[in-house]
Amino acid sequence: MAENRAPEYTEGTPCWVDAQLPDVEAGKRFYGELFGWTFQEQPDLPSGAVRALKDGEPVASLAHKTDGRLPTVWTVSFATPDAEALCRRVRAAGGRIVSAPLPVGALGVTALVTDPGGAVFALWQPAGHPGFGRRHEPGSFAWVQLYTRDTEAANTFYGDLFHDALFGPDADPDFGRAPVSDVFPAEMPPHFLVHFAVEDLAATMEEVTRLGGRVQVPPFGTSYGTAAVVTDDQGASFALLRR
């Protein structure tokens, strides 16, 4: 087992990320070169979706965006032992269910929801697939930041929803909240920004540009490291993080 893999993710812990892309093959080329990922076809995943591996361990998945009206995005999944029950709590707390819990073969159950501010995130109830095989290492998930218009309301919503993961004795949240205007224009909608760890921020930004992506926000300091916001060559935003 990889050193940074949790044997069981506490409810509310980020446990997976996936990108919805118009062109999965182009995504494989971009992220394969950028992070050294290799890719594995998964019979349990929807048609065209692939699992990304770093040093043989699962770190993400790329899926084909089936509706052109939907954004090209990275989505974070939070672990839960019971997706149905958590969906009820999300709705009761003022969130919205975008896609009701749905089995993904023998891998687990997924659902897509929003918080009261409209930020979209996924839930993952694991079965055959517990989540990240590697994290906190170069080329793997490192952090997710919620950019929101009301941090106090967000802290209340997520604090109630994911209390143990955020505040429990074994808390390892990998999850922060900040005002949209800290980094983005004020009109930017609330959203989650997935961060991947890198060893050399400047060199990785140059590689993003070489591969057809762009730097959206140049490096800035945070409480959890130095980050830069970039987009891939299909417009999906993510962050690079140097700790």
Results as ranks from 00 to 15, higher is better:
Ala202Lys: 13
Glu207Gly: 03
Leu193His: 08
Gln216Cys: 11
Glu206Pro: 15
Pro219Val: 01
Gly212Val: 10
Glu199Ser: 15
Arg210Glu: 02
Asp200Pro: 07
Glu187Asp: 11
Ala202Gln: 06
Val194Phe: 09
Ala202Leu: 03
Gly213Ile: 03
Glu207Gln: 11
Thr204Lys: 06
Val198Ser: 01
Val198Cys: 07
Val215Ala: 03
Ser223Phe: 11
Arg214Thr: 02
Thr204Pro: 07
Glu187Asn: 04
Ser223Thr: 08
Pro219Met: 03
Phe220Ala: 11
Ala203Leu: 09
Glu207Ser: 06
Gly213Tyr: 02
Leu201Gln: 06
Phe192Lys: 12
Ser223Trp: 06
Glu206Tyr: 14
Phe192His: 12
Phe220His: 09
Asp200Cys: 15
Val217Ile: 09
Glu187Phe: 10
His195Tyr: 15
Ala202Cys: 12
Pro190Met: 02
Phe220Ser: 02
Pro190Ser: 11
Ala197Glu: 04
Leu193Val: 08
Ser223Met: 09
Pro219Cys: 00
His191Thr: 05
Pro189Gly: 10
Val198Asn: 00
Gly221Val: 02
Gly212Pro: 12
Leu211Phe: 08
Met205Trp: 03
Gly213Ala: 00
Ser223Asn: 02
Glu207Phe: 03
Arg210His: 13
Gly213Glu: 08
His191Phe: 07
Pro190Glu: 05
His191Glu: 08
His195Pro: 10
Val215Met: 00
Ala202Pro: 11
Pro189Ser: 01
Arg214Pro: 05
His195Asp: 05
Met205Ala: 05
Gly213Gln: 12
His191Cys: 02
Glu206Cys: 14
Ala203Gly: 11
Val217Pro: 05
Pro190Thr: 01
Ser223Ala: 14
Pro189Lys: 10
Phe192Tyr: 12
Pro190Gln: 07
Met188Cys: 10
Phe220Thr: 01
Arg210Ile: 02
Val194Asn: 08
